[in-house]
Design a protein around this nucleic acid. Structure first.
Lengths: 348, 348
DNA sequence: CCTCGGATAGAAAGCGCTTGCTAGAGAAGG
DNA sequence: CCTTCTCTAGCAAGCGCTTTCTATCCGAGG
């Protein structure tokens, strides 16, 4: 039926051990023998049995990448960069590793299940991207899993996610708080005093940090925040659209809307326009992330640029052991305030 | 070190065979015994060894999803839908399958390598998404691989990709030609006679089909196409931006620009605006796919809506054998012309 | 009371590959 | 010319799980 190592060995007139060694290239094999084996492999069209190999060697070449939403370019861009460094086919690295992107949909259960699945596959490494859910039991459960994975020799890297305490996981964290603060400071600097804020999904670290940054900026400027100015939403444009309508209903005198991310900001722009408001003359809008489409919005979006691809690449290299982990296993990556047309002085 | 089936068996005072049966649930086990085993599993925190299981059972629960560009929502949306049906954690289906998204970057070699990797892992199913490269040797190589995969029991489904001849692969194809034609007919109907076209990457089926549809519409309307009106590009906004500038340079009298997809269209809009042209008063723009951000463009993009999520879901179900394949293994999925603000009558 | 059949559980033979150890063959050294 | 290495290649023992075949235990039927 299927061709096995033994078949190749028979054809090349060598032992299975030799074939294995030729294929793995980690043991001296005479050139002539190697040649013969390779020819046999080719002639028989042999394909290694991954599971058998993984079982015998007690390692696999699977690398897991967990993302919250695969349809969101925020994750797509990171995943792409990670995968590139992981050394999948054509990637920068040599080995042929299978990078598997797992879509958790932001659900804690799915996240946990995927981690178990990866543990089951004896994954070589796991990269968790994006914000984490803050529910205490879940945080503990994830930490426990990560510890187990690490114990089994799986390298764990967090990319754009806060550190996991009591864990060997390396963390590359985005400075969401700082970015949020800068953004709002910029708006305040333009003269805004009444700013609406649309958050991401509740219970997410990213959501909380960006909001905290926003509030820190307000506090620093001595602006007292009105509770009506904050609306909880999600990370998609629809959420931004609805939330903006709600904000306008609550306080039509707002002169700026800060969104949890660019997609939300886009939805906000749409809602504002539908309401007959001009951007930025009547209301300024700001996003976060600087995804590719943000520059094409009209007006172009003021936002905080996050080096998604760079962070992903670095995470990938660390996961493969090709780059040293940052001191203490934690590195903070800062965003860059990017001012464009969607923000301007209020009320003119 | 790691807990094995045997450990669990010892703890539960049964044979390894019984534990395996409890875990797989495909053989009668007395309730009391099952109970005992489950408790042992829990107490020892046992995690099945995937490779060992796959080796012994000669099957795995891996499902591969090949995409051309994971950072592009076009693929993200499909992948997400597929994964949901595949029955990954939390998905609709029961089993816990590991859906792995592989990013080929549009490269034929990577595509082939990933297929080999999946074959190596004895994947349960493989879904290939998006347009294919048309290079003859590569098409043959892929077909050969797909045949081999099918022979090994792997179900193969193509989603948004033309059928692979001489293959058992089920194909859900998008009617790119028809969509392209409708779109251009719409523009011609508005009165446009000089239409620029920005293609996707060369040698891709999607690129060719959309362009063919466009030309068919021109021909049907008796419009003779000027070679200068076609610029070859890519699928990202940058390509659209550049290509549009080039189109304007070649023939400033164009009254409409048809783009290979929405991202390209967005880039085109930006370029037009920079050139001081209004949309749609001076130049109409049309995209393709109707990605989420297209409705938020200003003006909102006229495009062809492709039911990405639906198609993905269906592909996923077929891959899992939960839905019957279409007759002859081929189904054509049509897009829906979606007219919005970016297209209007020329020259007013 | 004995036999037979249905339900459960166990024994054991692999699944295809890796790798520690051993063996043979020349090359080099004494 | 024999011993001692250095190279290569083979042997064989698993890796941890699944599954066929067999054994055992009971209650039912004769």
């Amino acid at each position: 039926m299927t061709v096995t190592l033994a078949d190749v060995a028979a054809r090349a007139q060598v032992s299975p051990a030799t074939v294995s060694r030729v294929l793995n290239g980690n043991y001296p094999v005479a050139a002539a023998t190697r040649e013969r084996v390779l020819r046999a492999v080719d002639e028989l069209d042999y394909v290694l049995n991954g599971p058998a190999s993984a079982l015998a060697a007690a390692t696999s070449d699977l690398v897991g990448i967990l993302v919250n939403d695969i349809a969101d370019p925020f994750f797509g861009i990171m995943a792409s960069a990670i995968q590139n460094e992981i050394g999948g086919p054509g990637g920068r690295a040599g080995g042929e590793r299978l990078a598997v992107v797992c879509n958790t949909g932001g659900s804690p259960e799915r996240e946990l299940t995927y981690l178990t699945l990866l543990q089951r596959q004896r994954a070589a490494a796991v990269v968790l991207t994006g914000g984490a859910v803050e529910d205490a039991p879940h945080v503990a459960a994830v930490a426990a899993k990560l510890r187990k994975l690490a114990a089994a020799g799986t390298r764990v890297v967090l990319c754009g996610r806060p550190p996991a305490p009591d864990t060997e996981a390396v963390a590359l964290t985005f400075d969401n708080r700082g970015g949020g603060r800068e953004l709002t400071e910029h708006l305040i600097g333009l003269g805004h005093r009444r700013l609406g804020y649309i958050t991401g999904p509740k219970e997410r670290t990213t959501t909380r940090h960006r909001l905290e940054g926003h509030r820190a900026a307000l506090a620093a400027a001595g602006i007292e925040e009105d509770p009506r100015w904050t609306v909880h939403g999600g990370y998609d444009r629809g959420a931004g659209h609805e939330a903006t309508l709600e904000l306008l209903r609550r306080d039509p005198s707002l002169t700026a809307v800060v969104a949890a991310n660019d997609s939300v900001a886009l939805g906000a722009c749409a809602a504002l326009r539908e309401s007959g408001l001009r951007i930025p003359e009547d209301v300024s809008v700001a996003g976060f992330d600087d995804l590719p489409f943000s520059i094409d919005a009209v007006p172009a979006l003021t936002t905080v640029r996050l080096p998604l691809a760079e962070a992903g690449a670095r995470a990938g290299r660390i996961a493969m052991g090709r780059e040293e982990a940052p001191p203490d296993g934690i590195a903070t990556i800062t965003g860059e305030l990017t001012i464009r047309g969607s923000s301007g002085p209020p009320g003119h």
